[in-house]
Write a protein that binds this DNA or RNA. Structure first.
Lengths: 188, 188
DNA sequence: ACCTGAACACCGTTCAAGT
DNA sequence: ACCTGAACACCGTTCAAGT
């Protein structure tokens, strides 16, 4: 890549990151280009779809998230560790309004740039889920894909209720603790 | 209201209903006005915000949903009835792409037209939840507001994955059955 | 090879002019 | 009292012209 092209790429990425943080992933592409000091055509050249821009931003953060998952895999309490991982995902998604929605949509669209980003995230979650199940803290028959979708859905609910900072914790607790008092028992 | 004004109101409402069904609640307001055979200004006169239009459409369906909740309140199995109610909500929301998102947002905005619509829905859910709790099928300490938010969040996830028709059932089951094998027990 | 920005299409919203 | 639709602002996307 030519030196000026690379510089433009980096500038666009940096401006996209701040714009997505401040205004959500629906932020105006024209404004991102303008703030990066390039023409709108240059933005489209480097990032043909909005999703391309989103996944480039997201990818820059996946490594840090994965590092956190490795820490949690060594934590003493498997179930608490899993909960903490889901909390991390929700907290991260809250930084980029609109990201969780895109991630949910990407899950049913293999091969998309965003779904490639979320694959290692899913693998990390899978390890934490497995460990909690082996420890007997979480019942069998729970699919990591479903759990991620539900987590993203919770992130979306949290996005929608900015004035209730504890909603995330309550909904995750609801998910994890479950509604049934005695899961094995038949309906009352 | 003048006769022609009322007719315009009804036409706009009918077109909004079909547009929201076909294209989601982000449907173009200009198109709705055009298909209703009125000027765009007339739409804004009758429905000052998009939310006004949405809640008018929604309100027209609340009665039928409430009737269903009364049926379920008489069903033999309290927990199954509650699950069925949540399923009904998700299924309805899936008919209007974008509605569940608006409902989640409305929950933290008392007094909005949409939140007035969802209050009786919440009351209906509360009765079903209470009954399941009194029967011992659902643990105490579950808030109906949280449960509704989670249900709307699930509806949103389902919206995002149109090619996985069973996702709703799986996520609702996940919510209801819960993750913990033995809820009362400490972490493993 | 890459960049620019005018051009086109589309939408939301307001408001002066009409009946 | 109500309706109309032009007008304005804004955004996404493409592409011919430039370097």
């Amino acid at each position: 890549m030519r030196a000026d092209a690379r510089r433009n790429y980096e500038r666009l990425l940096a401006e996209a990151r701040t714009a997505f943080t401040e205004r959500g992933t629906d932020a105006s592409l024209e404004e991102i280009a303008r703030r990066a000091g390039v023409g709108i055509g240059t933005l489209y050249r480097h990032f043909p779809h909005r999703t391309a821009l989103m996944s480039a931003v997201f990818q820059g953060e996946v490594e840090a998230l994965l590092a956190r998952s490795r820490e949690l895999l060594a934590a003493p309490q498997p179930c608490t560790a899993l909960l903490e991982w889901l909390r991390t995902i929700v907290a991260h998604a809250s930084t980029y309004r609109g990201l969780s929605r895109a991630l949910m949509a990407a899950q049913s669209d293999d091969g998309s740039a965003l779904s490639r980003c979320s694959m290692p995230m899913q693998a990390a979650g899978s390890k934490l889920l497995d460990r909690a199940q082996r420890a007997g803290a979480v019942r069998e028959g729970v699919d990591i894909v479903d759990l991620m979708q539900l987590t993203n859905a919770i992130a979306l609910a949290v996005e929608q209720s900015p004035d209730d900072p504890e909603l995330a914790d309550r909904l995750l607790a609801l998910t994890l603790q479950g509604l049934k008092a005695r899961p094995a028992e038949a309906d009352a």
